[in-house]
């Protein structure tokens, strides 16, 4: 049972992370290759605050706020550079975060922060907390998608210049997406820190940024349900592929490659296509039936 609880806690944290990136990249179309930096910011911030004696809930929130503020600053770069340039800039932010944290003795340097206090919940309670926050983020995503803000995000993602012409405040919406998404990532970081109780800089590296992006992209960029399914699958993958432990990363890379090559819309795109094809086939069958009756009569 303890094993399942651990697994579900991790899935909850990953869901928050993937959905938070989906807000930025999926909804608002701003690619980010440095999402792990905000996860890390939240983790470090919350860990240091609880170690200083602050209770867990305010520390968790503070981690989110600090990550969100940092995200707001990084979001400012998205007003200056676009697409490929933005992808590289955000990747740079990730490396900058890592390089900075590694060299700071007050953040523990390479060794990170250890001895993070327990959050004061049972393992089961912590799992419920993680899954609960993940569910709230999922509901929030679904709500945003249908709100005015969601439509504005969509317009910015589709064609920034046209969105600006029809009077959408592009800069404001981009910054909102970045601030919201990174704040949620910060909360995920705080949850991780108090679950693992020890954090090291290497956890928050480029590989993690790519993994989060992979969850979003394999699920189908912008699709909340697709991202949820993909996140659960990819989080379970190390367990599913345990029998080929040595080939885990090879399979991960291959999966990413094949998804993009054969189904760039991810799982959501694949489902939609299959659905349409089924519908079309059904339609054709009905036509054939119609033809048959027509011929007989």
């Amino acid at each position: 049972m303890a094993y399942e609880i651990t697994l579900l806690t991790i899935i909850g944290i990953n869901l928050i992370l993937a959905l938070s990136l989906n807000l930025i990249t999926g909804f608002c179309g701003q690619i980010s290759l440095g999402h792990a930096a905000f996860y890390g910011t939240g983790a470090y911030c919350a860990a240091i605050l609880t170690k200083a004696g602050l209770p867990f809930p305010p520390a968790l929130l503070a981690g989110g706020v600090v990550a969100g503020l940092l995200g707001l600053i990084v979001g400012l770069t998205s007003l200056r550079v676009r697409e490929d340039f933005l992808a590289i800039t955000t990747m740079g932010v990730g490396f900058l975060f890592l390089g900075f944290v590694r060299k700071q003795s007050w953040l523990g340097g390479e060794l990170g922060v250890s001895g993070i206090p327990a959050p004061g919940l049972s393992d089961l309670g912590y799992m419920v907390l993680a899954i609960g926050i993940a569910a709230a983020v999922a509901l929030f995503s679904l709500y945003v998608r249908r709100s005015w803000m969601g439509f504005a995000f969509d317009a910015v993602a589709d064609d920034e210049d046209t969105a600006r012409v029809i009077g959408i405040g592009v800069a404001g919406y981009k910054l909102t997406a970045f601030a919201l998404g990174t704040a949620l990532a910060g909360i995920a970081g705080g949850l991780y820190a108090h679950y693992a109780r020890i954090i090291v800089p290497d956890t928050f590296g480029f590989t993690l940024s790519v993994t989060i992006l992979a969850m979003v992209v394999v699920g189908g960029i912008g699709s909340t349900w697709g991202v949820i399914v993909a996140t659960v699958l990819l989080s379970l993958m190390p367990e599913l592929f345990r029998f080929v432990n040595d080939y885990k990363l090879l399979l991960f890379g291959g999966l990413l490659l094949l998804t993009m090559r054969f189904s760039p819309g991810g799982l959501a795109g694949l489902t939609r296509e299959t659905w349409h094809r089924l519908r079309r086939n059904q339609g054709r069958n009905r036509e054939q039936v119609d033809d048959g009756t027509a011929a007989r009569s």
């Binding site: 490929d84 790519v210 990363l249 890379g253 990413l256 490659l257 993009m260």
Partner: peptide, 27 residues
């Protein structure tokens, strides 16, 4: 085959290939 897709598609495919290549060298 994916030239007419948005740029991030090729970027992520490329990252996937790179991870797979590193692993292949290791194995």
């Amino acid at each position: 085959p994916i030239l007419d897709r948005p740029p991030f598609v090729a970027l992520i495919a490329s990252i996937g290939l790179f991870i797979a290549m590193e692993e292949a060298f290791r194995l």
